[in-house]
Design a protein around this nucleic acid. Sequence first.
DNA 1: ACGGAGATAGACAGATCTGTCTGTCAATCC
DNA 2: GGATTGACAGACAGATCTGTCTATCTCCGT
Lengths: 207, 207
Amino acid sequence: MARVAKNPGSVAVRDRLLEAADRLFYAEGTRAVGIDRVLAEAEAAKASLYSHFGCKDDLVAAYTERRIAEARWRIEAFVAPIPPQERATRIFDWIVAWAESPEFMGCPLQRMVGEITDAGHPARILAAGQREWMLARFVEWVEAAGAVNVQQVATALLVLFDGAAIASLQDGPRRARDARWAAEELLKAAAPGGRGGRRPKTRKQGR
Amino acid sequence: MARVAKNPGSVAVRDRLLEAADRLFYAEGTRAVGIDRVLAEAEAAKASLYSHFGCKDDLVAAYTERRIAEARWRIEAFVAPIPPQERATRIFDWIVAWAESPEFMGCPLQRMVGEITDAGHPARILAAGQREWMLARFVEWVEAAGAVNVQQVATALLVLFDGAAIASLQDGPRRARDARWAAEELLKAAAPGGRGGRRPKTRKQGR
DNA sequence: ACGGAGATAGACAGATCTGTCTGTCAATCC
DNA sequence: GGATTGACAGACAGATCTGTCTATCTCCGT
């Protein structure tokens, strides 16, 4: 069981399938791409796909999971060398670079949620988890930035983050830069002693 | 040619088709809904659909056009009684109300753009026009608000607007309220004499 | 050397989807 | 009142999509 690649240099079929699905689903959407396209791109057999992933929906879920994992380590890797108090703003540099990359096609999770209406779909469940993770990061970064009104600023940055992705898909990467500018303004306004809101360090006010 | 409804009380078949398409496409996505579903919902014949709209893509374009027209008059109607200098912030009240409505399924244009990859698709062309219209409104409102750095603030609000829609689809209407808070902060910061940016009334710095 | 696990290739069933076409009916126009 | 027009109903073709299944091949461990 779980044999390795049979010939050196080739990748295990499950990975090939997932990589092919990743490329195609992200570029064209999960609904627009059929199983056969994935098989051709992966140079794999249909039986392999259905033995590794039970059905297409589960392949979509696996694709979503992969995108989430990738996003997390990319973000963590980007943020790691940055002083904690600067992370809340600098993360928007990352978004700008992402939006400027030639293969950028928006946020895969946003597009998946737009396509898959059923909130109970396994991929939707995964995406909901990523929302919480992302918000938790913003709370962390905003807190480290020493801002007042942490929760409110963090959710505002989350919304800006989302807006940067979808607006860049429509108008190009300039929107990501616009989001960055807005994020900087918000954090300046939320600097302690600034024109910002209330002081309490932590305040339960919903997520 | 262009006959009226044959029996009183019934609507012309083209309108019925468009209304049915609108409901179904918005609720489930243009790709998930087949022609037959639209026909059943509209209680119309297939030949009627293909004679009024040439193909499904054109029906999708007509749906998009309808959504755009509706958005424009709704926004204009909402904004009309509001003093111009308050419109930039108060428009976010409109978004909050929208996101709170039970049938809210995100911004139809965002979801369409996420589904339809081909930027040359007629519906995509229409959507691009709506982007310009929306940005022009924000510029107008921000200018009326007397803010400095009009273009930059306007694009920031546009990104917040987009973020409010997609984030509310994922996390619920609280994100629209978060966007409203952020918009208020940005406008406060951009008040003349505030901590905001430069003064020039109009400044070409891209759209 | 042999048996089994995993991979491939592809036929196949069944559903669904777009788009065409034929035939019928009712209302309207000249 | 006869011709025209628009709508309806639905069969049909052709493509595509998901998912199953069979048959074959190739590694790998024993």
